[in-house]
Design a protein around this nucleic acid. Structure first.
Lengths: 343, 343
DNA sequence: CTGTTAGCGCGTTCAG
DNA sequence: CTGAACGCGCTAACAG
């Protein structure tokens, strides 16, 4: 029933050649004649041989596996990034081990340890909501295992980062709201410990300043940006509590912006008439809610591809070629009805 | 820089005991004294020891890794299932290797082969759009590697399946539309080769029949249910071509239903006045579009948990305990405005 | 172009 | 309770 596994020894015996030759033949080593290779391949297939990954890993000290740690799997943004990563990885013969931190630093630590013990060849990570200390990633850096951050990154001299220009995008979208006539714009965003939120906040502030708009503390609302995650205070209530009511809102996540918009509308507030709304990400939901959401197109699939490609190039190249600069992908403003106060 | 890896030999030497004892101590073997165990654990930690997974795998012929093949990562349903799986797997000390078929049978075959060669301990799969032949999964069955299908399943005597009652759910939601006064209901769904779509279609047909409504071929629209996948004919145009126009639509995917609804509305059709719409899955989008979508709550996270738990129980238990029955999770109708023709 | 040899790190006999 | 010895399957020297 459970047939014994075929090994290169079995093939060698069958063909009356040495296991080493079989090994080389299977891996398409140049120093093996076409004929022998063909023979080996054929018999391997007919005997149902499959290479033994761990034996190979043990020997080579390499797993052909890349770890990915994300904050959560069930987010449009994340799953799109993963789709891009998976594509590149599988094209290059790498497996992806994926785990989620569920926005908990504690779980992120556990995940990093698991990845480390699984001896992944490289790791790509996007940080949890409020991770501050990244010492759980140090074993990778210390051992020279390539570590790359994407989206929610941490600046470390040994780690490349793949990002977008969050500052610029936020500046643009806020400026757009101002151009539409908004004088008082509330900003709903995530923990400012994360670069993405910090940078967007700065961009927002700069746009206000450049246009002579005053910022007050009640205009900054920090939230998990997900109705179902973490100890959320209701952002919508916070918005409604602002007096006088803002006439614009920049909410750094489309899904959450859509949620807020629904609640505001339910409260009799007209969008964009009373409050113009802008989101972030270009989640499909932004084109389905009414009014359609003005947002920033975040090239998530491309980010996955670029991150994976960068890491894999590094894995295949010389180990001192590690590119440690940030790679900044292009994001752009998409204007839709939710922010159009004028025609 | 790249410190040499610590092995059990190093620990053994340090403590002047045998590697075998270290091995046992590390694995909490009963035949090792408390004291020695403690000593081993302590020194292992202080030396920065990490167990070598492949050496262990090679020896034990086991990887502690579970493969997952899904149709695509960037779907709310799939990512939620994965979130559930990841939770259970990581709790039980298993890693997840995840790959996507992108609805292509060809890629599904490649993925299955990769999983097989990676020697996953078990595999969970949801089939691609139109996979018919599952011979690429046979190596798993032949070798006795547990294989479990979920959602889009294939009935095979050796494979448990985790599903919902698609027939019943479709029957219920169609009946609901009929109760709202619909006399002509169009059904937009996926390839009928997949159980989920076939069963829903049957449920829909049965509901029509039980209520004396006539079915005609133009009421069945087969689609990839995703604007961006595959060679889609525009489902909305197909709906609009039906003469006279239907007064109800059962679209087996919320995201796609939302898309259709937007297009229909853009065409001046009132929802639910002209056409009542029902979706499927209880995707968050169903509660954000207007009108909110009537749908079926699909316990996706739970499905992930149950699937993973079932597989892992099997992996840990006796190999002949393989449960081969289907596990049917509870799904239920959620009525919202998009289908409410009456008050 | 091919064969010989050795060892990657671990767990598991079988002896004590 | 502990140790000695072997081998899981593969690949990289080194030899021819």
């Amino acid at each position: 029933m459970k047939n014994k596994e075929i090994t290169i020894y079995d093939i060698a015996k069958e063909l009356d050649i040495s296991p080493a030759t079989v090994s080389r033949g299977l891996r398409d080593h140049p120093a093996i004649s076409k004929k022998t290779k063909k023979k080996i391949m054929d018999i391997a297939k007919s005997m149902g041989y499959r290479s033994n990954t761990f034996a190979s890993s043990l020997r080579l000290n390499r797993t052909n596996t890349i770890g990915v740690i994300v904050h959560r799997l069930d987010s449009f943004f994340v799953s799109t990034v993963l789709a891009g990563m998976e594509k590149i990885a599988s094209e290059s013969g790498y497996n992806l081990i994926i785990s989620q931190s569920l926005e908990s630093t504690e779980k992120e630590i556990a995940n990093a340890n698991t990845m480390f013990n699984s001896r992944v060849d490289g790791l790509m990570a996007s940080l949890a909501y409020d991770t501050e200390d990244i010492s759980h990633f140090m074993p990778f850096i210390d051992k020279g295992i390539p570590l790359l951050f994407f989206d929610r990154v941490y600046n470390h001299k040994n780690c490349p980062a793949v990002v977008i220009d969050n500052f610029k995008s936020a500046y643009e979208i806020t400026t757009h709201l101002i151009e539409q006539g908004c004088k008082k714009i509330v900003h709903v965003t995530g923990d400012l410990k994360r670069n993405v939120y910090a940078d967007r906040y700065q961009g927002y502030r700069k746009a206000l300043a450049d246009n002579g708009l005053k910022f007050t503390d009640d205009l900054l609302i920090i939230n998990y940006l997900n109705e179902h995650v973490g100890p959320n205070v209701d952002a919508v209530q916070q918005i409604l509590a602002i007096d006088p009511l803002p006439d614009g809102a920049f909410i750094t996540n489309d899904a959450f912006a859509a949620y807020c918009m629904r609640e505001l509308k339910a409260d009799g507030i007209s969008i964009p008439g009373d409050i113009a709304i802008a989101g972030f990400n270009n989640d499909p939901i932004s084109g389905l809610v009414e009014p359609n959401l003005t947002t920033i197109n975040y090239p998530s699939y491309e980010m996955g591809e670029v991150a994976a490609r960068t890491l894999i190039n590094h894995l295949k190249g010389a180990s001192n070629m590690m590119l440690t600069d940030s790679i900044v992908l292009k994001s752009e403003l998409i204007v839709r009805e939710s922010s159009l106060k004028k025609g």
